[in-house]
Design a protein around this nucleic acid. Structure first.
Lengths: 136, 136
DNA sequence: CGATGATATATCGGCTGCCGATATATATCG
DNA sequence: CGATATATATCGGCAGCCGATATATCATCG
């Protein structure tokens, strides 16, 4: 079945929960710290994602605590959630690798922009094969 | 400025164009082949993405050909497009690595699901620090 | 010769999903 | 007392993806 790719926000939440259970606000902070502030998960995005992930069985409510008068609702990954995150990480790494390889391949002629002004216009380049290098 | 992350479809199009200019239908086929059929870019998605990428200056219309009575409109990456793709690939690789590391970190106790039935419920685990391992 | 399928372009409506704004409540700090 | 941090949650708008649809040419098969 291979299960189709999750959204970016979902990936961030799952990653934040990968090492230990966290509550909503904690997830928000963790995502920010994880990327040194570059990637930010918005509050308005969080709860929808949490609901969807729960409905999909990738996370579950771990426990509720009242800490200093404030409610904390902790979530944790299910086995299915771990598997999904792992699969997504694999896909992303593969995609990133493929992109890098192809950038390098396109650099060969040293002409990234202007393609050197073709001849009399004809005969399309027959897709120089060889190093394909796929996603998976 | 760091430029915010592009959409998945945009990433796929840029990747397909990374090694050489291609026309719309060719991009569609290339994306499919690249992932061995796992990832598919839909026709209904393509042209909107192409327009947006053009407006953003990441790709440009390279040339138009009439091959066997059918029009082919070739696009290619701009220097800015190459840079954007490269940056995105970097981000994805970092994110994938971070997820993998955290999954491994969470596996330590060998209790991925049930957290071993806590004691009388109190004293949250004080966020065992150490190996943080960020995105970037 | 007509049907089917691959090639190739493009549009549109609907649905999903992200985000800014907003609301509520408590604890801390100045 | 007001501002800031912690913590939850909802809602409306907008961007973006996808299925369906339309159009046209060429090759293949019956």
């Amino acid at each position: 079945m291979t299960a189709k790719s999750m959204t970016r926000a979902a990936f961030l939440v799952l990653t934040a929960l990968a090492d230990q259970p966290r509550h909503g606000y904690g997830i928000l902070r963790e995502v920010g710290e994880l990327s040194d502030g570059e990637v930010q998960l918005r509050v308005g995005t969080l709860y929808g994602v949490l609901d969807r992930l729960t409905a999909d069985g990738l996370i579950v409510l771990d426990r509720e605590e009242v800490q200093q008068g404030r409610l904390r609702r902790y979530y944790r990954l299910t086995d299915e959630g771990v598997a999904a995150l792992d699969a997504e990480a694999e896909r992303m790494a593969a995609g990133a690798g493929a992109a890098k390889r192809r950038i390098a391949a396109g650099r060969r002629t040293g002409a990234p922009s202007r393609p050197a002004a073709e001849g009399p216009a004809g005969l399309e380049p027959p897709t120089p094969p060889g190093l394909a290098g796929g996603f998976a």
